[in-house]
Amino acid sequence: MALLEVHDVHSHYGNIHALKGVSLTVDEGEIVTLIGANGAGKSTTLRTISGLIRPSAGSVRLGGRDIAALKPHAIVAEGVVHVPEGRGIFARLTVDENLSIGAFIRSDAAGIAADLERVFESFPRLKERRRQAGGTLSGGEQQMLAIGRGLMARPRVLLLDEPSMGLAPILVEEIFTIIRRLNAEEGTTILLVEQNALAALDVAHRGYVLETGVVRLSGPAGDLKRDPAVIEAYLGV
């Protein structure tokens, strides 16, 4: 049984039918990527999983348990942590404060302290800027902070929405290296939404291609990378 199972989910923004029956699964220890053009519904899918939007039909299961009806904070408590598009750093709060809010749902002080050290190991640059306001960090550092903050909740599934957005190529590479390492070394399960399809398919095990609210294609990342339709639509120059 898959750890995260999204089954035939429909979501609306008022009259706009953004998701028209999306299904996908993420297994424990996997990186799964969801690629697609701007406006395809990738962020909506993540928002639906994390409960920020209530689906109008379909189910979202975590470890077999339906979480679609839960409130967002309860879904975080279940282990699904969403790092939103645009990072959502608390700009006026320090790096430390941002990270401590990430661990909000936990009460094991010792575990939190240990995880803080682990985050600083993964992102040494954050450690140097612990007392700096989040809003004064560079784009890459903010993304690291957003991911680190997500990790502080010790998620069972980490939902990353376009972590490469707006970053210089060298930083994009660094972020993807970190994503791969988090998965390989710490076993973090990740659902990665990306417009940068090439890089995403490079780190992911499997992938889904979303088009206007519908899953068009899915399969192992290697296969998708070679698929002529994908190459033409998303990987072409």
Binding site: V76, F90, L93, I101
Partner: peptide
């Protein structure tokens, strides 16, 4: 503090 800064993100942090 999180709520004051950004309600949506606060929610996403489990608040």
């Amino acid at each position: 503090m999180a709520l004051r800064e950004d309600e949506d993100v606060a929610q996403a942090m489990g608040i």
